[in-house]
Design a binder for these strands. Structure first.
Lengths: 209, 209
DNA sequence: ACCTGAACACCGTTCAAGT
DNA sequence: ACCTGAACACCGTTCAAGT
């Protein structure tokens, strides 16, 4: 009974081509869709339709769907690195900066769930990014390692291998982020309360002495 | 040029119907496929084909694909609960039992990645399982809370709210499991080494005093 | 150069029909 | 009761063709 919703209906309202930064527009549209409807609902056809462009136009700018997701991940890693670095500095580095980094990490995940899920959800085959992802992954991680070394020098963090400590801490914040994102946290303890609690237990756990 | 690979070729080798525990066979086949090729490769058609059954036979036993995944999750929660409970008891409960539980948790995730991912990957819309998942989720979690209370009574764990502590600890083991599963851990520190390290830092962090 | 529409080989799901 | 095959409305991707 119903008319076809999609189809040749939307055929290009005005100008012939998109013109402008189509790749960027596609990336943003993808993020918007994932944010609202989840990654499974992301469809190249929908991206094209929303931008008033053919459903195959994307292939002019990305190798395939995975490459689009790879771009989302790359942008996410850049944003994450910036957010944590800023928080660390803004809190005056050191002890407080360290806590602020943890909070900033978890808040980033909650504020940008689409990015975070793509970054770590296994869509972009982790590690040595085969999907065209550079490696600011290690960059954001290196920030944490540096912060730890700094505090070891100041004598307030135990002198275990810094990378080992960093991975441990990363596990904690990643665990909190994932549990929060997947809705496994009870209302009595949201992500913000949890990361603050974790910061204290974490610090006691890694303190020197 | 090539002949159609699938199609009406496999048409039922012998007996008319499957007969036997088809739901169970489907669940196991699904797990096998996810284990080997990832959840995105799981296809109802493939499940049917591998079992020598029509690609719609599944609908006789499960409402839809999500229900099949829900069954995987339910089985996973049961297995996880059993594995951690056994480890806790086998290690004599208490201090050592606590560590053993952490190790068992992470090992479960690595040994049953398909189950673990479905359980927590957001496929089964967490929490009050709307996908037909009961709630052994809280069961496995309750085990952890009980272990903490036991140690608080023994005076070796600080008297924070036990649920809060449990969620914190869960974050740690979940974080380790997810990072390991997604291949984010360096070879120098695999999941087993990490959970052992975490156990020590965790204990220091939550010790009373 | 950049974009399009038709076509291909897939999906999950529904449903009338078979035994 | 249980299972089947055809059909429907979708996918991602390829490619000859348009401007």
């Amino acid at each position: 009974m119903a008319q076809p919703i999609r189809g040749t209906t939307a055929r290009k309202p005005r100008g012939r081509y998109h013109h402008g930064d189509l790749p960027r527009a596609m990336l943003q549209e993808a993020v918007r869709i994932i944010q609202k409807q989840g990654v499974d609902a992301l469809t190249l056809r929908m991206v094209g339709e929303r931008l008033g462009v053919s459903r195959t136009a994307l292939y002019r700018h990305f190798a395939d769907k995975r490459a689009l997701l790879g771009a989302v991940a790359t942008e996410g890693f850049r944003m994450l690195r910036q957010a944590t670095a800023e928080a660390f500095d803004a809190a005056g580095r050191g002890d407080e900066g360290f806590r602020a980094m943890g909070v900033a990490y978890v808040r980033f995940a909650l504020a940008h769930p689409a990015h975070y899920r793509i970054m770590f959800g296994g869509f972009v085959a982790s590690g040595k990014g085969p999907a065209g992802v550079a490696d600011p992954d290690t960059d954001a991680f290196q920030l944490l390692v540096d912060a730890i070394v700094e505090q070891q020098r100041a004598g307030i963090v135990r002198t275990d291998d810094a990378t080992q400590l960093a991975i441990y801490i990363w596990s904690v914040v990643h665990g909190i982020a994932m549990l929060a994102l997947d809705g496994h946290l009870p209302p009595s303890m949201d992500a913000d309360a949890l990361i603050r609690f974790a910061n204290e237990r974490l610090r006691t756990g890694i303190a020197s002495g």
